[in-house]
Design a protein around this nucleic acid. Structure first.
Lengths: 371, 371
DNA sequence: AGCCTATTTGAGACCGGTCTCACATGTCAA
DNA sequence: TTGACATGTGAGACCGGTCTCAAATAGGCT
């Protein structure tokens, strides 16, 4: 009764014996390759069913060298952004007959490296990775050198010639910034959740992620072309850790020359902005305008609903998996970087900056006096 | 240049040869089992490094029969609820040296069955499953019979004697209902996202999920003990499909004897309630009170913030993985069902029902007249 | 030195599939 | 009848590790 003899699983040989054929023949029938007469097929299938045979995919993969599995390393599964991407990946993979092994890097390059190692060890047919850093990329170069297909998701790595699927972050940031400028803002902050020791932005060397860099470029470009000087001074990093976000945001908003608008790098940051504002007794859009990356569904039910940059994140995953599958099946053209378009969804979190509202009030006041 | 000779990977034999030792010895060193002299170890490691050896985990798993991998099948990765659970699972698994293979069932029993099949084929050491149905469970029984450890996550299956980790849904539903009753509500709806052809609840046979059943029991029990008759009439199912939720909610709210409070089965449903209410021009908590399952972080920034039932979903995942690992390493005590506690977080979405507000107004009015 | 034991090492079986190749059988045309 | 060729089947090598077992070597002790 205790530990029932750890039942050895049924193998091809067992089935073959029971069906009265050779191991090779049974394997041909069950693996559906080679030829076999209808009679034999029938016998083998019958025996397999009777014995409850289930193929050992490990053994199969070992001989064929193919595992019909793709490995995925993602920054943070808990983040709905990646959740959606993973869903896209897994749908596309399933449709092509592939399974997915998922790993979490926690946006930590060392963990990512370990995860890639493990997945390569498991002989996945290909990899999809959201690289945690543009600097620590030896492991990815190794993957590339080994010849195993690799697709980068959401982020690129400049000197690594592999396929990538990303969104047009730069253009998105530019569009959002322009929208704020058109509403009259001149002091626009970009708050990013990206890892950083120093919350103040001092230059590109601090930035680990291509997306963040692109967005910063977008914000700066749009600002400069509107004649705004030193737009970088309102850029803040490292709003990821709990508590840190609140601190960064409140210091920014209570400092001299405070920004009148914030562009949040994701909806977790946007949430922090909301909470901090509530704590400071400020409101959107009267005291501050807000635009956030990622159209999480809840952003439409806040008061006011948030203007967001919608990213096709399911498609991001879906396409990357499709590309990977194509590579695995042997398409050999040069690696490309596919850029998916984002859309700015205007809701009600952008207003005129406070000083303009005041001017307007003064103007109306004056008009009233005169009138 | 075309297809570079698909580089055969470095094997133990290659390393052995290069180090001038036997395959067995190299394997001992690289697999860190058995014994080897320091000199030999050094030589082998050096050769392995020089050749860039990386173990083939497939081959390793095949001989050992252990894959150091656990398979996970969840209802919907895209749902933040499962995202958090998966994070918990993957943290606990990693800590114990296990990898995770993830599959998505889309809450479809057939897909779940296929996923379990695939994972068993890959010889995972154990499985964590959120079963999509209490009825279609043959595949899970098979897993159990095969002797491979299985842990059910979030939901139980009555006649399947395996470990499970769930939350106290019944008690949670009871507490939420009681809170609504205390606020004066007598017509309380429970709206569930669970799959169903018929949105009207007609009996337990319609229910596929233990969680849903428990919650219904909770709502009904709390209602009955407060002397509310026929509480089941406000139960609605199948609010999962897009569009369907809105239809169900608006019909419910525009029908005769409309409920004055809603208990939403998850935050997707809660979101639907919010949207529908906005469309109907109703507001929370004046026209309707709302309590939702799952403390998604955005529920605290809506206006008003939503009263929720907080579920320890990360822990749910973490514990289930821990239990699974313990089973894999061979602990043989009887399977248990662990129930994790939930907490009702009171925010501002519960108010008095409209009729009481009116009475109060009338009373105050009268009082004013008299006074 | 001589014996005994402990440690290190290598040869080869094994895991459960696939795949190559040789052989048996069947079909058909000359 | 015989040869050419297609088709079905089995024996056994192979994938890349682990693991058993026996042989070789080293070390300790009388």
């Amino acid at each position: 009764m205790k530990r029932t003899t750890s039942k050895r699983l049924v193998t091809i040989s067992d089935v073959a014996q029971s069906a009265g054929v050779s191991k090779a023949t049974a394997a041909r029938v069950l693996g559906s390759y080679g030829t076999a007469s209808p009679v034999v097929k029938e016998k083998v299938h019958e025996a397999a069913k009777r014995l409850g045979y289930q193929a050992n995919e490990l053994a199969r993969s070992m001989t064929t060298g193919k595992s019909k599995t793709i490995g995925v390393v993602v920054g943070d599964i808990e983040n709905p952004y990646f959740g959606q991407a993973v869903r896209g990946i897994s749908d596309a993979a399933r449709a092509a007959g592939f399974d997915v092994i998922l790993s979490n890097s926690g946006e930590d390059a060392a963990k990512e490296k370990a995860a890639v190692r493990v997945l390569m060890g498991k002989r996945v047919d290909g990899l999809i990775v959201t690289p945690a850093s543009v600097y620590e990329t030896q492991h990815l170069h190794e993957v590339q050198r080994s010849g195993r297909p690799l697709v980068l998701l959401d982020r690129t790595i400049p000197d690594l010639a592999v396929d990538a699927v990303v969104t047009d972050d730069r253009q998105a940031a530019e569009a959002a910034t322009r929208a704020l400028i058109e509403a009259g803002h001149r002091r626009i902050a970009y708050i990013s959740a990206t890892e950083s020791d120093d919350p103040i932005y001092r230059g590109p060397h601090q930035i680990n992620l291509s997306t963040v860099m692109e967005r910063i470029k977008g914000v700066v470009a749009a600002s400069l072309s509107a004649g705004i000087e030193h737009p970088e001074r309102y850029i803040r990093l490292g709003a990821n850790r709990r508590g840190e976000g609140d601190k960064i945001i409140s210091e920014l908003l209570q400092g001299p020359d405070r920004p009148t608008a914030i562009l949040a790098s994701d909806n977790v940051v946007a949430l922090e902005v909301f909470k901090t504002l509530r704590r400071l007794g400020m409101s959107i859009p009267q005291d501050l305008s807000l635009v956030a990356f990622h159209d999480a569904d809840w952003t439409s039910v806040t008061s006011p609903p948030i203007t967001v940059i919608a990213q096709p994140v399911y498609d991001l995953g879906f396409e990357s998996a499709q590309i990977l599958v194509r590579r695995i099946t042997g398409v050999g053209d040069a690696p490309r970087c596919r850029v998916l378009a984002t859309t700015l969804i205007k809701r009600q979190s952008i207003g005129a900056p406070p000083e303009i509202q005041e001017n307007r009030a003064v103007f109306q006041n004056n008009a009233a006096k005169i009138g």
